[in-house]
Write a protein that binds this DNA or RNA. Structure first.
Lengths: 241, 241
DNA sequence: GAGTGGTCTAGACCACGGT
DNA sequence: CCGTGGTCTAGACCACTCC
């Protein structure tokens, strides 16, 4: 492989090389060099080449046909292939909007029955409750009520959340990586209180979103209820495979 | 490996063996035998063992820690890990409801501007338009208008769709495998016409769903607009990783 | 038959986590 | 230090596609 750029695994480096080649020099349905050719071209074992190609296949850049070869797929331009977005910030950016988050309140309290069920913990366990207003291009879009188990985020404060996206804080400060997020979407009606916060009118149709997030040990680390303005907010998602 | 059950790759067989072991004999956070132990226990190369463990990790059965070991996660009982469901039938089944589909109309026609854009084809290209009513436990839930490029499904008829789920027909009869599905969810208001078909009232809030489906060559094979009763329908989804 | 991707091996070295 | 998972090699045989 190219002498430079060490430290990273060779198959990752090959993924990057091939991504660039595909994007700049190849057309949809073009055949890539065979695994054996790539193997000798880049002086890698075929096993390593295959790991890289598997990666590219998962990302939708190529597809394979047994006995025929590996071919370029055409997602490529679909840039924002955030397959499985569950971040407001990312969603808005991918739509070309400028996202902003205002923390309306941040407090610790004891879990009531409802929250305890959502977080899979006992009633009266200490939790953090965060209320946030999400805006896009300065327009109020969504209201989020997030519940976190205090035991997993003992030192969290509002200030940290102002500085970085919540999931970044989870990962960097508390070593909590989001592995799975379950969401339930439904339609509802704007309450008087929410209407005031979202500068809209009571009784308007809203999109409701309930999210449960799990870490790599499959413990619940977040339970969030969101209410989004039905006239402004659309939810985009991509299923792969 | 066990003599029986050949034909299938060894790593798939190992995946099944370990799945059973994990479900029946192990607890959350138990450590699995090391890769080298599994390798000698089952008389497989470590490479093959690792492929199996990667598979289990992707499925959420285990998680790994460099230098420590491979540990049991606790999804296991969450059976319905249909990570990325985009099938009404599957969604309803997973909620314990009995799904049913009535085909209201099936016809070929020429694409207008709107459909042509949705399918990424030229105006006036021949297409199939299917209107279906989806019910759960005999209650009307959702109305779907599906547009397909006739060129990819030249012999499709309503009868075939009555017998099997649409994506099964795509795969078995036309060799079209769904690789990616993009969906956009939004909130809307029931039209008079839809209200009649869904036995509901005009002006009621509805969940609107727009789906674009791609095959493994990333060609669009389906464009569907759905309208679901806001009071009955919830949309469940799971993001992985 | 020649060429492709799919599976599998036996062994090596590295990086990380604990003792 | 040892044992763990992470990376990588060189080579083998199989299954599929096309000529």
């Amino acid at each position: 492989m190219n002498a430079a750029n060490d430290g990273r695994p060779l198959y990752n480096q090959l993924v990057d090389i091939l991504k660039v080649k595909i994007e700049n020099e190849m057309q949809v349905n073009d055949r890539l060099p065979s695994e054996r050719e790539l193997s000798s071209q880049y002086d890698l074992s075929r096993t390593t080449v295959r790991i890289a190609l598997n990666e590219l296949e998962l990302m939708g850049y190529v597809h394979r046909q047994h006995g025929k070869g590996t071919f370029v797929s055409n997602v490529v331009k679909g840039q924002t292939d955030l397959g499985g977005t569950y971040s407001f910030t990312e969603q808005m950016k991918s739509l070309g909007k400028v996202p902003e988050t205002k923390i309306l309140s941040f407090k610790t309290m004891k879990a009531n029955q409802f929250v305890a069920e959502g977080l899979g913990i006992d009633v009266d366990t200490e939790i953090i409750k965060i209320k946030r207003l999400r805006l896009a291009d300065d327009e109020p879009m969504m209201l989020e009520r997030t519940y976190l188990p205090l035991s997993k985020f003992p030192t969290l404060d509002a200030e940290a959340l102002q500085k970085a996206p919540m999931y970044d804080v989870f990962r960097k400060d508390y070593n909590q990586v989001v592995k799975v997020a379950d969401e339930v979407l439904s339609v509802g009606i704007m309450t008087a209180n929410d209407a005031r916060l979202l500068s809209f009118y009571e009784g308007a149709p809203v999109l409701k979103l309930k999210r449960t997030t799990y870490n790599n040990k499959n413990e619940i680390i977040e339970y969030t209820l969101s209410v989004a303005r039905g006239d402004k907010f659309t939810y985009h998602l991509r299923h792969q495979r």
